[in-house]
Design a binder for these strands. Structure first.
Lengths: 261, 261
DNA sequence: CGCTGTATGTTCGGTGCCCCACACTGCGTG
DNA sequence: CACGCAGTGTGGGGCACCGAACATACAGCG
């Protein structure tokens, strides 16, 4: 249960060449991230970046009137706290643990040193990797904006479940409908209805805060194109380095459907 | 009319120390950006980055069914083509000239060289500046997502007008309601109605594709908090370097109202 | 075993925006 | 000057989601 996981379960750490990884290793510290923990608050200086292993962290903006909306989600595919190496130090948004788990954290000082280190044989591999991840995050936020504008709650719920699923080790997530509603920025009742449809269709099964995904392909078919776009871009930017494509949209890369509508 | 503008009207170029600026100067090329010109297409390798002088460029995502939504707007405050230095080379979104004007462009190769150049006396000023701008863009996208989720078309129109206004030299913009609708991802009729309200309230005056803002403060009062957040964050990140604040939300910096609701 | 709180299900009126259709009006052009 | 069209105004019907209130059911705990 509480065994020590390999830091390189995190995809960013996994992508580092051994040499760069070994330089980082002494600074990495395993921490538990319980559900609901706030990793950073808007406007407050961050002390660490977090490389999740099996936890999921939501970046969300809380408005003056208390309403909230998720703008991106980070799991083993990325790192929480990009503002530290982007140079802003803080953001107007908040980071909250959406699914409990573990992460490796790295002190701000150590991160920045490693980020800026250009010397040595290798030419800022970590630097480039983190920037590509930041671009993936940019894409995710953009797509969230589009999705919020144009797509139905049903579609958005599918997208959200898939994004979460991709970042978890199993097909089971611990998550009440109330929490999902907060993330999506909708009413709880709306989620109840949308989730009910999915359950009746046999795609998921849920019970008092536990959701099990039964038919992943079915979710993909019901989801909007947003999930596919984000997934493809994440894979391209983080897992494959750059590989710029020529020609509109290029060919799909992920495990995602393309023709479905 | 077509005189040669100072590149340093662009705020990013203006923030560079003289030495860094002079190194960039030979590569800068003045180009006209006519309304509607597409600066880059989704998935296609970019050749240049653009530093707008008085043009405004919209980053927007066009969906499979042709519907679109603006995810950020770039003017003299920034640069079009962050994917070039972020390392992704391409993005799933499109960049379109929303308001005609001029920009200085810089070849991809030269930009990347300057971005990576760490040697010399100065330590990557351009590098840090561009990354801080990228974070500002991140914030703008996040806020667009929030705004799309929670705010009315009336509020969003105000936000949009203000964002455009900040990037223009006068209080007059050339823009049909049809175009605005495309940017906001809503129906043209919706914009007609919202704009009508603003005109009846005496905040703006418009006629056949020409909009004049009469009461800027009034727009700010009717807008949602999203405009203020984006504005403050842009100023903080680009104009002031970092200056991390401690404590929630910090003190407002921009020219924006804070108490209004 | 009953109490209590959390999680989920259901209903109803209201509203913001969509879709569709059409009417009006300046302005430029032949 | 008539025509055409781009830009704008208006209306009806519909749908998705909101807000609020309430019903049910399961889980843990004393």
């Amino acid at each position: 249960m509480h065994s020590v996981p390999n830091p390189r379960v995190n995809q960013l750490l996994a992508m580092l060449p051994d040499e760069d990884y070994r330089q980082l290793l002494p600074g990495l510290e395993l921490v538990a991230l319980p559900l609901g923990q706030i990793i950073y608050e808007p406007g407050v200086q961050m002390e660490y970046v977090y490389f999740p292993v099996d936890a999921i962290v939501s970046l969300l903006y809380v408005m003056e009137d208390g309403a909230s909306a998720e703008i991106a989600v980070v799991g083993k595919d990325g790192v929480v706290g990009v503002a530290l190496f982007m140079g802003g130090e803080t953001t107007p948004s908040q980071a909250v643990v959406q699914s409990a788990g573990q992460a490796y954290r790295l002190g701000a000082r150590r991160l920045k040193d490693a980020f800026r280190r250009v010397g040595g044989r290798r030419q800022g591999v970590l630097h480039d990797l983190l920037l590509r991840y930041a671009q993936a995050l940019l894409t995710q936020m953009a797509q969230t904006a589009v999705c919020n504008r144009h797509h139905t709650l049903d579609q958005q719920l599918c997208r959200w479940l898939l994004l979460s699923l991709d970042r978890l080790p199993s097909n089971h997530l611990v998550m009440t409908q109330e929490l999902i509603a907060n993330m999506l920025g909708v009413r709880r009742e709306g989620v109840t209805e949308a989730a009910g449809k999915l359950q009746r269709a046999g795609l998921i099964k849920y019970h008092r805060g536990h959701i099990t995904v039964l038919d992943r392909a079915g979710l993909e078919a019901r989801s909007c194109e947003c999930y596919a776009v984000v997934k493809r871009e994440c894979d391209r930017l983080v897992l494959q380095g750059t590989s710029a494509k020529r020609g509109k949209t290029g060919s799909p890369t992920g495990t995602v459907r393309d023709g479905a509508r």
